[in-house]
């Protein structure tokens, strides 16, 4: 359309009415609306609600009054909060390096084009499709005091008493980490397989011609090429490590280990906010603190990625 439209107003209006649907100014918003509505309704709205609630003393059935920063002060002075926060951060520090490196090693192994490799690829991916509850139950039977591991240890006389994998807070947390890593291996392996497929074979050939062995080629060719993927996997696994709940719940029961010593932040949020006496306001404040922690680690991941690009 030209900038100088000298047609009468009525003709212009008729022209606008004849304009196809996809050319109207609001058409893009129409297409965006369903997605946007679900994001606002199920993402932004509950988030904003949590922010508001965190400044109140609301309970499950009672509307709360504004209490300022009381819930945050209470959380920061609550030993249970610090235990849970410590457990969550420890979880992240152990699980993330494992989930960044082990799936890469696994991907390199199953990338080889040998007969029957498809079976191994599928086998490693199986834990991903198994439900977390089933995985937890299987591991419970493996790690119990009369479970598989302890029976083998006792028979081989490696230990004289069963190892309290599930009844000691620290070992329970380690067991839960083991389950998370085992379940995540196949998932992130697929990420790396995609990234490895994009590494040009010519780079490996050139390095091999220069006399580099498999280890040097892995360190100097493969790793730099898949580094962006490693950062992505690191960020994703960090976020899911901070959200861990199911593994601890299934292995350690509803108290979160003996004395609640293996509780993570999501576990604490559930415990505080659950039931008719549930403190929605306080649980929301802990949720917000968990959000800030997650945000901090995500930003760290982003900064690392940027530094890498530079």
């Amino acid at each position: 359309m030209t900038g100088d439209d000298r047609r009468p107003a009525a003709a212009r209006a008729a022209g606008a009415a004849r304009r196809p649907l996809h050319r109207r100014w609001w058409s893009p918003y129409l297409f965006l609306a369903p997605g946007l509505a679900s994001v606002v309704l199920f993402g932004l709205w509950p988030f904003a609600n949590t922010v508001v609630l965190s400044f109140t003393d609301a309970r499950i059935l009672t509307g709360g009054g504004f209490v300022g920063l009381d819930n945050y002060r209470r959380a920061l002075g609550d030993p249970d909060f610090w235990t849970a926060a410590g457990n969550s951060v420890l979880y992240l520090l152990v699980v993330v390096p494992c989930l960044v490196l082990l799936p890469l090693a696994l991907a390199v192994l199953v990338q080889a084009r040998v007969p029957g490799i498809g079976f191994f690829r599928s086998a490693y991916y199986t834990p991903v499709i198994a439900s977390a509850v089933v995985v937890g139950l299987v591991w419970q039977w493996v790690l119990r005091s009369d479970g598989l591991v302890n029976t083998v240890f006792l028979r081989l006389r490696i230990v004289s008493e069963p190892v309290p994998f599930l009844t000691d807070s620290t070992l329970l947390l380690v067991s839960a980490m083991l389950v998370t890593v085992w379940k995540g291996l196949g998932y992130y392996m697929v990420f790396y397989l995609a990234a490895l497929g994009n590494v040009p074979a010519s780079l490996h050939e050139a390095a091999a011609l220069d006399g580099a062995g498999p280890v040097r080629r892995f360190v100097h060719v493969t790793v730099p090429q898949v580094k962006p993927m490693m950062l992505l996997v690191g960020t994703l696994s960090a976020v899911s490590a901070l959200r861990v709940f199911t593994e601890v719940y299934i292995l350690g029961g509803e108290s979160g280990g003996p004395g609640g010593g293996a509780r993570t932040l999501p576990f604490l949020i559930r415990q505080v906010g659950l039931g008719f006496a549930g403190e929605t306001g306080y649980a929301s404040a802990i949720s917000l603190l968990l959000f800030l922690l997650t945000l901090a680690f995500s930003l760290l991941g982003r900064r690392l990625a940027r530094g890498d690009e530079a």
Binding site: S255, G259, G260, Q271, V272, G275, A277
Partner: peptide, 20 residues
């Protein structure tokens, strides 16, 4: 004796039963 009270008591008692 709400859920929260029950959980709090159980946590302390569990530690004692474990000998902690």
């Amino acid at each position: 004796w709400t859920n929260q009270v029950g959980d709090a008591v159980v946590r302390e008692v569990q530690k004692a039963i474990k000998g902690e």
